[in-house]
Amino acid sequence: MKIGVVTFPGSLDDVDARRAARLAGHEAVALWHGDHDLGGVDAVILPGGFSYGDYLRCGAIARFAPVMQEVVDAARGGMPVLGICNGFQILCESHLLPGALIRNDHRKFGCLDQRLVIENNRTSWTSAYADGQEVTIVLKNGEGSFVADEKTLDMLEAEGRVVARYVGNPNGSQRAIAGITNEAGNVVGLMPHPEHAVEDLCGPGTDGLGFFTSLGAVGLLSA
């Protein structure tokens, strides 16, 4: 598959995301925040970093980038979209996913190898995992605490839209939620960084590679 990785001013992990996509056997191409089309890609990754310097709110300016209108339209049409860390924040700001990401409850930036449980393997980005599989990938954030009102949280739980949950709770996320999906299963937001766990040489191992090898496999929520 041809995967486009968007670079915003302040993105940090766009190169890492493209590398992860290539290691998973895909063609990876760079998209720019000012682009007005997606260049025929089959999927999009919004990478981690500090888009537009995180002014106003994390992801609040990036949602208005020209490329995001194309991403939103494509996502609503069924294209797989993965938002990692800042990308997750952008997906929430763009209303492709509910909830918000706020300052960690300990008020510090955290960077650690974090254990997760995969709770939904029926999305475009998680079908390579077993339901309930425990993985370890990198977590690095200052505003990674997922919050939503109780009605939304109950809805996410009832519809099986919690994609991954922290083992422990490193940042105060409500119900230890690390990632969620939209109703169709093609849009996933994940606070930890799977692109930093795709080879044994660097990072905590290869547990993150499944987020990229999942693309193209059958297993959408709508199936």
Rank of each mutant, 00 (worst) to 15 (best):
E134I: 05
P204V: 08
G99N: 00
H33M: 04
A176Y: 00
S222E: 12
E183F: 05
T136H: 02
D105K: 12
V188K: 06
Y52E: 09
S173T: 03
V187M: 05
G10L: 13
I102C: 00
V41G: 08
L139I: 03
T152K: 10
D73W: 00
S127H: 02
D13N: 15
D13Y: 15
E27V: 03
L221S: 14
A176I: 03
I90R: 04
S127G: 01
Q114S: 12
T213R: 13
D154S: 15
N121F: 02
A65G: 02
H36P: 00
C92M: 09
L97F: 07
G77D: 12
L23N: 02
A223R: 15
A223S: 15
T123E: 01
V187F: 03
L23P: 07
A184H: 12
M191R: 10
R161D: 00
T123G: 09
D37A: 09
L215F: 13
K2Q: 11
D13L: 15
G168Y: 06
K108T: 08
T206W: 08
G83K: 11
Y129P: 01
D200L: 15
M155L: 14
G40W: 00
D14A: 14
L153C: 11
N171K: 12
S11E: 09
H33G: 03
K108C: 02
H26C: 05
A100C: 12
G132K: 08
A43W: 04
S124M: 10
R63N: 06
L215Q: 12
T126L: 05
E119G: 10
C202K: 15
A148P: 01
V188N: 07
Y55V: 15
R57M: 10
L112I: 05
L91Y: 06
E183I: 08
L82R: 06
G203E: 11
G160M: 11
N121C: 10
G179E: 02
V135H: 06
A130H: 13
S222N: 11
D105H: 14
A178P: 03
M155W: 15
F109L: 11
K140T: 11
C92Y: 00
F109V: 06
V81R: 07
P192E: 05
A130F: 08
T126F: 01
G210D: 02
H196M: 14
A130M: 09
